[in-house]
Computed example of a mutant assay.
Amino acid sequence: MDIKPLVQSAVDAYGRAYAPYSRFQVGAAVETDDGRIFAGGNVENAAYPEGTCAEAGAIAAMVMAGGRHIRRVVVCGGGDAACTPCGGCRQKIREFGAPQTPVTMVSPSGTVRLVRTLAELLPDSFGPDNLR
């Protein structure tokens, strides 16, 4: 499966993120089992805890379109290091993804910086199957 459209969606979302306070833009894109792609950018707020992460925005868009399973994720962030999802977003991804779900971190130019499975990012995770 070609990851280029998913990477491009995350890069485009990075470019549209709203980060006037930290100036640290993040874009994310998730792909569902049927190949649909949903993107989101971080949205900061003057009341700092009220901002939202890029991954949360992408997941919310997916859910509103009826998506319920994440096949793969791409996160785009600036800086010199790979921009990995925060702890809260790792758990949000886990709600709709499996431990083996690949999460790819890219630069604003789309260069792959790091690839990890969700299990590597969130070992021994608590997910929907724990409540069955």
Rank of each mutant, 00 (worst) to 15 (best):
G127A: 12
G66D: 05
K4I: 04
V73H: 00
P49D: 04
E120R: 11
G40D: 06
G79Y: 12
A39W: 08
D2P: 13
Y18S: 15
P123T: 11
G15H: 15
I37P: 07
P85Y: 02
V112H: 05
P20Y: 15
T104M: 10
R16V: 02
D80P: 00
P123S: 10
R132P: 02
G35I: 08
G78F: 03
I59G: 05
P99T: 01
G67A: 09
P20G: 15
F96D: 00
L122V: 07
D124K: 15
D80N: 11
A81S: 13
T32P: 09
T104G: 04
A60V: 11
G35T: 10
I3W: 03
V43N: 03
S22C: 14
P85R: 02
F38M: 02
H69Y: 07
T111H: 08
E50C: 09
R23H: 15
R94Q: 08
P20W: 15
V103F: 10
M62R: 06
D12V: 11
C76L: 07
S9K: 15
T117A: 09
V43R: 08
A54G: 00
A47C: 10
R36V: 02
P102S: 12
A54Q: 02
V11E: 02
P108E: 10
N45R: 08
A10F: 02
A19L: 13
P85G: 05
Y18E: 14
V73Q: 01
S22M: 13
S107P: 03
I37Y: 11
T32K: 10
A119I: 04
G15K: 15
P85S: 02
L114W: 09
Y21H: 15
Y14K: 03
A60C: 09
E120G: 09
R72D: 04
V11A: 03
R23K: 15
V106F: 08
M62V: 04
A10W: 00
F126K: 11
R36P: 07
V106M: 05
Y14S: 01
S109C: 00
V103R: 03
C89A: 01
F96Q: 10
C76Y: 02
A58C: 01
E55V: 14
G67Y: 09
A98F: 12
Q100A: 14
A60S: 14
P102N: 14
D2M: 10
E31V: 03
N42R: 08
T101Q: 04
P5I: 07
V26W: 05
V73C: 06
C89H: 06
H69L: 08
E31R: 08
E31Y: 07
Q8G: 00
V103L: 13
I3Y: 03
G40H: 01
A54S: 11
F96W: 12
S9D: 12
T84M: 04
R116G: 00
G127Y: 09
N45K: 06
T117G: 12
